[in-house]
Amino acid sequence: MLTIIKRLLQGVLVIFLVLTVTFFLLRLIPGDPARLIAGNAEESVVQELREEMGLTKPVLVQYKDYMLSLFTGNMGFSYFAKNDVAYVIANSYKPTLVMISIALPSAIIVGLLIGLLCAVFRETPFDRILTSIAVLFQSMPNYWVAIMLIQIVGVKLGWFPASGYKDPSHAILPALVLGLPLTGVFARSIRTNLIGAMQQDFSKAAKARGVPYLNVLMGYSFRDTLVGFLTLVASQLGFMMGNCLLIENIFAYPGLGLQTLNAILRRDYFLVQGLVALLAAVFIAINTLVDISYMYLDPRIRKAQGGL
């Protein structure tokens, strides 16, 4: 229990640091939102706008104001969406969530299947072909896959919509781009670890005791690889969130990623801060959850961490 509380407190500290870094970095970048809103208006008008937006105050005062308002649950105001940051986030998380909830489970299932098959039929041509496909999936730059898929599947074949978001069918191509490299990574890791586990003594002993092959495979060897697999899934989630930003940009897919990118480009300060904090929070929450689940899954870790 103590470990969990400690982790959560550390998480809060990291989010705070991430927010601080973002806050000051954003204000260091040349270009300001008032100028972007006002367009070609005269300098005096822009200056008025800046004052209205609170940008003329010293940066440290702005920082203090922002942090204080965060404690009251106010994440600030988006200049371009002309609404609260919380509202903007609440309105755009759905497409991203749909995309991830298609991509991640399919990548895990397909990756596990390919990895299992490869390990069972290892060193056969079947294994070599599947492994090569996995390497290929993993190595293709996702934006390139996205462009090619839009051209081939979206435009030439017209099977799935290639941009925007109206219903979940719009999520299929982006989810495919997001999921393919993950599938490759998962498949290869399961294959390597499973082959390792199948050669270990506990698998051999079970086999010698007359446990049926499938039981040895699933109940002994495969079980041993699960903790490692969990770590891998968690470590890929961070990359995945970065990739969402990119993929949503290419597919003009109106989720959190596209919001983040636009917010940065428009210097929509509070929106960027809110989104970055959200991403960091999700990232930390997942890692903490994974650490906790280790303690349940692996008694050795439970002991080393001083118990639950």
């Binding site: 990291v14 970048i29 970065g242 480009l265 960027v272 970055v276 991403l279 960091a280 990232f283």
Partner: peptide, 16 residues
């Protein structure tokens, strides 16, 4: 912080 930061965001901020 570095690992918790969505790093494409970092890259875009640094490039600008």
């Amino acid at each position: 912080v570095q690992m918790g930061f969505p790093f494409i965001v970092l890259v875009i901020i640094f490039v600008s």
